[in-house]
Design a protein around this nucleic acid. Sequence first.
DNA 1: AGCGAGGCGGACAGCGGCGTGCGTTAGCGT
DNA 2: ACGCTAACGCACGCCGCTGTCCGCCTCGCT
Lengths: 215, 215
Amino acid sequence: MTDRLPHILRSDALDNRERILEAARAVFAVDGLDVPMREVARRAGVAPATLYRRFPTKEMLVTEAFAEQMYACRAVVDEGLAAPDPWHGFCLVIEKMCELHAHDRGFTAALVSTFPNAVDFDARREYALRAIDELARRAKEAGRLRADFVLDDVILVLMANSGIHATSPTTQVTASRRFAALALSAFQASPDVSPLPPVARLAPPASVSRRSQVG
Amino acid sequence: MTDRLPHILRSDALDNRERILEAARAVFAVDGLDVPMREVARRAGVAPATLYRRFPTKEMLVTEAFAEQMYACRAVVDEGLAAPDPWHGFCLVIEKMCELHAHDRGFTAALVSTFPNAVDFDARREYALRAIDELARRAKEAGRLRADFVLDDVILVLMANSGIHATSPTTQVTASRRFAALALSAFQASPDVSPLPPVARLAPPASVSRRSQVG
DNA sequence: AGCGAGGCGGACAGCGGCGTGCGTTAGCGT
DNA sequence: ACGCTAACGCACGCCGCTGTCCGCCTCGCT
């Protein structure tokens, strides 16, 4: 009611907004989401106030910054769904997802974290998960995916993949690629596999950039 | 030369030392190593100065706090080495290691982190790795471990395991157990496995409790 | 060209962690 | 029992991050 603001930014403001997002993407990719807001502002060549004016909370910044990553994520999933062979589609999704995460450290955190206000994230996450579930169902039917696979295993693998850190980006990608291959090797249906232990219902951790606050 | 200090602590000092270590272990296990020193002091019911007097750096504190975990680590490795079947020994090591890490979030960080001054850690780490390497060699000879397995894959899996986070300790352990099983499933020699992508030479990240400091 | 609103950045107060100096307390040896 | 000295903890100064206020600037419309 009270705030009927312009909704159209002035040219310089729009320019700054872009620079902020660019800086945020760059620094989030390398250092994760635990970067101070001021650091983003510094990199963007902008005063803190300007950053806070455009993005009052870090969540908003993160959400906007990773919008295109989310598109990429969706694209990957759709590509997997469209593949004629469900198992190949499944492999493709896992591999590409791991690669996305390997390239961008912050993206993992953003995806895994639950933002109270970022409904968009949850929605896309749900979409991706449903798609993978469908893919898994088909791959199981085709007898290529082990029968005791569950959707949570994808979460498990993606979380695990996010634990892999390397010094250089190339090493990171190489490691992540190998890990993805190992994961797929584990998921593959095979005559001589022993049954898996029970599934853990994994919920994403609390929130982003909240330092450990134990009473 | 200058500091020829007593080396024997007074009873109260020794008591405080134990309480500090206990508190550190507890909080590190739950929240990882990124806990403020003061928080450890608070939990131990001790003033910051006292903590700093006993453990001038966080590294010293961590090293001492995880001493017994390191023993457990060694015990696991030795147990694996002693197993008659090398593959079972290998499985046991991976499973127990993952479980150790699942129980104690800080331990992973401590093991993965490279402390400049903690020679002890490196030595034990090296010992464990050598043992696993030996175990892997034997398991390969027995035809149970896939031939393209390399030692770095263990690091990869342990790092990955550290990426798994859950809200409750039980969930954490369950998830980690399943993950270990998946990893072993991937490592298992099998007729229809596709070859793995190249290995990444994983070096542990820089240091402990250094916030991202990019120029 | 002039004007007004929206945008900008410097500056500020608050908070929390770090590491330490110093006066006080209490263990331990005689 | 006494005193010496190690050990304790309060409190301090410093630093970095957060979020906001306010005076100046500049874009963009007329």
